[in-house]
Design a protein around this nucleic acid. Structure first.
Length: 420
DNA sequence: TCTGGGGTCCTAGGACCC
DNA sequence: TCTGGGGTCCTAGGACCC
């Protein structure tokens, strides 16, 4: 066993993966408890229906709004996908990332609510703060997921981690009313799989010895990192389960999937994963993108497209300023009506967070893109991020005189960007 | 009536430098 | 005349995840 999996002092490495149950939908159910047990889907983007509902019942308690007054999935027109479905809705075969129109056929009577991002972010922060109070080594994996190192936390070794998992579940439920599922295992790879075993509101434990009985029967797709493409290729090679994957020779996997992926697959199939818990990380890029309500043409809808383009640049600039970054590489993303996407990017001499500078560079990128097909999506991205004046771009070496001047210039540029 | 919006990481080729 | 590698940066695309 790897050293990382066998810490000293008689303790064994125990890593938890915690996943909030139907997070977006569950947050809405706190506001509208009358919908409990009903099929509810979250998605669609715009809040108009929800706002209309609240205006209609202004002065009333939200919990008193009659169920029959909520918007139904079958009445929705337009684009969009499901963000989250309640377990009652999942019975009908609808689930995350499914198009709303397709979902409406499967479960027309489902209630459709839009995502309330500010509320979601509040609850996300709340459940993570609750965890951090109990177990300080936590890795943020997005809005509704975290890894937690149980190894040295009081209770983290008891019953293989079950005692601590139960404590965290209870603290989150008592303070937010939300439930979550927890998997505890020797590493992140296995913990992630374990957290899916017993949803919702479950706890699952996996130990080294459980590999053959609990992991090998699973489909390869259950490995975090094997997506639709890799799974398809594995199937074409006659490999369906993780156990079958584990039977393959390392060299055979490398021959078919390349050095890196092949070796990773081999380790994953044997339950090996030495990735550490990452407590903090810097963003690599910041972007904004939007799908249009109808496909737009670069020439015929030039004005509309131009306005959207400028707004995206302004939003990215605001995001950069709010988070305290400047970026050197400006890029665009186009998605055409056939759903094919392309990107173009360009690296500037100096990093910026200024909306006009971003807009100008993005405009040059757009000129290099083919624009005969209709567009369904436009995006703007800023990468190669650094902190203004913080010198993150130059931190590897002592700045030379010329670079010091350059940094000063960046700093004043960023300050003027904040006036925007 | 298909297919959101935010990310990360990897690969691969070309430019350019030593 | 031909022949090197290694390293870094830039760009484009794609797989994958939440």
């Amino acid at each position: 066993m790897d050293r990382v999996n066998a810490p000293p002092g008689g303790k064994i490495r125990r890593i938890a993966h915690l996943d909030m149950d139907a997070f977006y939908a569950s947050v809405e159910l706190l506001r509208y408890p009358q919908l409990k047990g009903l099929p509810v889907v979250i998605g669609g983007g715009r809040r108009t229906q929800d706002e209309t509902l609240r205006q209609t019942y202004a002065g009333h308690t939200l919990a008193d709004i009659p169920v029959q007054d909520f918007p139904l999935l079958k009445d929705y027109t337009g684009r969009g996908v499901i963000t989250t479905a309640t377990y009652a809705a999942r019975q009908f075969g609808v689930g995350s990332a499914m198009g709303l129109m397709k979902a409406a056929k499967l479960c027309p009577q489902a209630i459709l609510l839009p995502v309330d991002f500010p509320e979601i972010r509040r609850y996300s922060r709340a459940f993570k703060d609750i965890i951090l109070d109990i177990a300080p080594l936590m890795e943020d994996r997005g809005i509704d997921e975290v890894y937690i190192d149980f190894t040295d936390v009081p209770g983290g070794q008891r019953e293989g981690g079950r005692v601590l998992a139960r404590l965290i579940q209870k603290a989150i439920f008592d303070q937010t009313g939300l439930t979550c599922s927890v998997g505890v295992a020797p590493n992140k790879l296995l913990a992630k799989m374990a957290s899916e075993f017993n949803k919702p509101n479950g706890i699952s434990l996996v130990f080294e010895d459980d590999l053959a009985s609990k992991i090998w029967p699973l489909a390869c797709r259950k490995i975090n990192g094997i997506g639709p493409k890799a799974d398809e290729k594995l199937k074409s090679l006659g490999i369906e389960t993780i156990g079958q994957l584990a039977q393959q020779e390392l060299q055979w996997l490398i021959d078919h999937f390349g050095q890196k992926t092949g070796a990773w697959m081999f380790d994953a199939a044997h339950g090996r994963d030495t990735r550490p818990i990452v407590l903090e990380s810097e963003p690599v890029s910041i972007s904004r993108e939007t799908s249009f309500e109808r496909d737009l043409h670069a020439v015929r809808d030039k004005a509309e497209l131009g306005a959207i383009f400028t707004r995206l640049c302004e939003q990215v600039a605001q995001d950069l300023a709010r988070k305290g970054y400047v970026g050197k590489t400006i890029g665009i993303k186009l998605r055409f009506d056939d759903f094919k996407s392309i990107t173009r990017d360009q690296t500037l001499e100096q990093p910026t967070a200024d909306a006009r500078a971003i807009r100008q560079a993005a405009g040059l990128c757009l000129k290099r893109a083919p624009l005969t097909q209709r567009l369904r999506l436009l995006g703007v991205r800023v990468a190669s991020l650094s902190r203004p004046g913080g010198g993150a771009e130059f931190k590897e070496k002592e700045p030379l005189a010329g670079e010091f001047i350059a940094q000063t210039a960046i700093f004043s540029e960023a300050k003027s960007g904040q006036l925007f």
